[in-house]
Design a protein around this nucleic acid. Structure first.
Length: 752
RNA sequence: GGGCGGUUAGCUCAGUUGGUUAGAGCGCGUCGUUCACACCGACGAGGUCACUGGUUCGAGUCCAGUACCGCCCACCA
């Protein structure tokens, strides 16, 4: 692992800085910057959060100055949201095409209160429809005005210090906070009749993303990185970074974020990389007493030009400057290390979409630049970047420290377990979408981990100290129906997992594994093995262990700790080549030749029959301890029902027997059910005929309706012609089953 | 002003090449001390997939539009 201020990283940072400096991409310049008066540092555009705020728009009259410097009774009214900055006004701008002000351009105005004369200039940036169409120009305190000022050569007056207090330029308001100055100035304007009127107004105000203090735009000398400038013909940092995504060398998942990335990259502006804080990499630039400037990787002892004494620039770099180097710097760059050779570029990287610009964009730019000797493929920091969503609080609000609604992962791990926390978040939403934090989900995940633990305990307990050989498909015939079924299901799961993992559908993957383990493995397979194991049949052991082994392997990325712990026990019971740890063990993939369509279909039937038995039990309110006699009048699936009969007897708590479809039932009262061509008759102590009829009618309506819908669909020529064969065939089969069920129920009703 | 996402069971959310009766967990109802698990099990109730129109043999899924919620970007004096 690596720490930002490690010497190796410092070297990478300095090497990058010096290289870019020599190429002329990094420069020092006086520009309008975002200044946080509380942190007392410059910020990049990305570190400013804009918030809509209710404010006021103040309309102030600026008298026109006549010959000899005397104010005329005529005036230009300007609209401003920040009257306190008027002390630093150096002009008033109007749109040159605005008839109202055409003749005013070039005239002088008297700045109220200050008494200074300022010119009226024409500038296209002014929108005639806004306010009065005339805007006061304050180049020292507004980015737009800075631009206008530059175009018209207006002086830059800075009337605030770095803590946002009014300075001597503010005359009578010197020493006041901006807020106090605003109140005082408005009072004075009003007293002297310069305040025309005030309107309610909403606009967005920039705040420091760290401390929420209102940002002051100020002209300041800072270090900048020009990402658009070509460092060699045809290549710029942002141009290359956009191209890499555009031509698919770097894939963004989910894809919709591509547009966001490109939009930002294509409209990128110079990055302010210097900060006036104490923590960070100090800028590797030195100044000598003779005004030489030296950028160097190693600290120079004296000025290489004149030998004079040196002073290092006091600013530090934006931390994202070093973070952006992570993919190659962490591997040892600028040294040609073994790790760098082997691991760069990495395959996948993952982050919240909220740091796409901060981190991802910078990693791409720096990676492509620093590693450019490797060519367009080899220089990329990663091939795929996954953007996950944000965790919001239970009310859907963004988690922030100031709101105090954050969730501490360590506390969650303590409360529910690290695996449960991880699993809940991984399965909580689709990749790229936000999710609400919910304790219910944490509990559910914890319960699943517990369930897994207990199921493994069962398997391991039954296997005992022996070593078991994994089942082999060649021996398929020697396995029971449910064995073949669970192995088939496992293999099907493996294909699904392979598919969804390749598509980066992490949540879907985890959910399908959970579904398999909970439902197929625990609810059905384990339950069905109990009676066999009790009878001394050891064949299920190998299957149990095999399914558990593979399940743990697949679940490992989603629940690393529990699975590793359990697998340590599993690996010792399996006779074969097993890795020392699950984390380095191979990941299952399909191809084991266990798929078995007939077992799938047969078991599905068995499961449905058992469900029906239990349903009748419940509906007829049989006592929990009762073991009613059940006749399964079977046709096509008779063999399957017979093979699993003992499991049915055990898990559905009945005294069941399979008979031929046309077998006579001994005289008794029965509750009936039907699955495809199998009739289920549950002997009952008494039958409420009306209730039984109602139940059967409901079932019949369901089955008949279903069959009817499918029949109609199948009768459609267009459908038969255009739908894929498998769909038609599958529907045909389902329709026949539904019909068999319906006709069986109909017969039963008539018999009643 | 641009761009993007969401709207599916009471709640939180899945549902990726359109295809047989739309799923999970939680919650709810009934039952249960069967030797892995009550952090459990069995059975069940619960959805016109926001709305309108279109394409198609077939639409939660594709297209167009509407409504509401949310996010991102942009120098709205």
């Amino acid at each position: 692992s690596v720490f930002t201020l490690d010497p190796e990283i410092a070297k990478a940072v300095r090497t990058t800085f010096v290289s870019l400096y020599k190429k002329g991409l990094i420069y020092r310049g006086l520009r309008m910057i975002n200044w946080c008066p509380r942190c007392e540092t410059a910020l990049s555009d990305l570190e400013v959060d804009y918030v809509e705020e209710a404010a006021r728009l103040y309309f102030v009259r600026y008298p026109i100055v006549g010959e000899g410097g005397m104010p005329l009774p005529d005036y230009v009214t300007v609209a401003t949201t920040r009257p306190e900055t008027m002390v630093a006004d150096s002009g008033v701008a109007v749109n040159p095409s605005d008839d109202r002000y055409e003749e005013k351009i070039g005239r002088m105005l008297m700045l109220p209160i200050m008494g200074r004369e300022i010119p009226v200039v024409g500038d296209d940036a002014v929108k005639p429809e806004f306010g009065t169409g005339a805007v006061k120009v304050t180049p020292g305190h507004d980015p737009n005005d800075w631009e206008i000022g530059q175009r018209h050569d207006l002086p830059v007056i800075i009337a605030m210090d770095l803590q946002a207090r009014m300075n001597d330029e503010a005359g009578p308001y010197a020493g006041m906070s901006a807020e106090d100055a605003r109140t005082a100035i408005l009072g004075d304007l009003d007293d002297e009749g310069f305040l025309d009127h005030v309107e309610e107004y909403t606009h967005s105000v920039g705040h420091c993303s760290r401390c929420s203090t209102v940002i002051q735009p100020l002209p300041s000398e800072q270090w900048w990185l020009d990402t658009r400038k070509e460092y060699e013909p045809g290549h710029s940092l942002s141009g290359d970074a956009a191209a890499a995504v555009r031509d698919g060398r770097i894939g963004i998942v989910p894809q919709r974020f591509e547009k966001v990335y490109l939009n930002w990259m294509d409209n990128i502006r110079d990055w302010c990389i210097s900060r006036q804080i104490w923590w960070g990499h100090q800028i590797p630039v030195w100044y000598c007493e003779n005004k030489h400037t030296i950028a160097a990787v190693e600290d120079p002892a004296a000025c290489p030009e004149c030998g004079g004494a040196l002073r290092q620039d006091e600013d530090v770099l934006d931390t994202w400057f070093s973070s952006g180097l992570a993919p190659h710097a962490d591997l040892g760059w600028p040294e040609e290390t073994e790790s760098l050779r082997y691991w760069y570029p990495t395959a996948d990287i993952q982050m919240g979409y909220d740091i796409m610009f901060f981190w991802c964009a910078r990693m791409v730019m720096f990676g492509l630049y620093n590693m450019r000797e490797r060519g367009s493929e080899g220089s990329m920091p990663f091939r795929k970047v996954l953007f996950h969503g944000l965790i919001r609080d239970a009310n859907g609000e963004k988690m922030t420290k100031s709101k105090g609604n954050v969730v501490d992962p360590l506390i969650m791990a303590e409360k529910y377990g690290a695996d449960a926390f991880r699993f809940a978040i991984l399965t909580g939403a689709t990749l790229g979408s936000d999710q609400r934090f919910s304790d219910e989900r944490m509990i559910a995940a914890r319960n699943f981990a517990n369930k897994l633990w207990n199921s493994a305990r069962f398997v391991l307990g039954k296997v005992g100290p022996r070593e078991v050989k994994s089942p082999h498909p060649a021996d398929r015939e020697s396995f029971a129906l449910e064995d073949r079924w669970i192995l088939s299901r496992l293999e099907q799961l493996e294909s699904e997992v392979d598919f969804s993992m390749r598509a980066y559908q992490l949540g879907e993957t985890a959910r399908s594994i959970e579904e398999f383990l909970r439902s197929d493995f625990c609810d059905w397979y384990i339950e069905m093995t109990k009676v066999r194991l009790a009878a001394g049949d050891e064949r299920p052991l190998a299957v149990l262990l095999h399914a558990l082994d593979h399940g743990l392997r697949m679940l490992h990325p989603f629940m690393p700790f529990v699975t590793e712990e359990l697998w340590q026990a599993v690996r010792q019971r399996i006779d074969g080549d097993m890795a020392a740890q699950l984390i380095v063990a191979w990941f299952p993939k399909s191809g084991g030749n266990w798929k078995d369509a007939s077992a799938d279909a047969a078991m599905e039937h068995v499961i449905e029959v058992n469900r029906t038995i239990r349903n009748v039990r419940t509906e007829k309110k049989l006592e929990a301890g009762a073991r009613p006699t059940v006749f399964l009048r079977a046709a096509g699936n008779r063999w399957a029902l017979e093979e699993t009969l003992s499991a049915t007897i055990f898990t559905s708590r009945v005294d069941a027997r399979v008979v031929a479809a046309d077998a006579e039932l001994p005289p008794a009262e029965y509750g009936f059910g039907r699955v495809a061509d199998t009739e289920i008759a549950v002997a009952l102590p008494e039958v409420d005929l009306a209730q039984e009829r109602a139940r059967l009618e409901k079932e019949l309506a369901e089955a008949a309706g279903h069959a009817e819908r499918l029949k109609k669909q199948l009768a459609n020529e267009q459908f038969r012609a255009k739908a894929p064969e498998t769909v038609v065939a599958g529907m045909q089969a389902t329709m026949l089953e539904a019909e068999a069920r319906a006709s069986g129920l109909r017969e039963r009703l008539e018999a009643l």
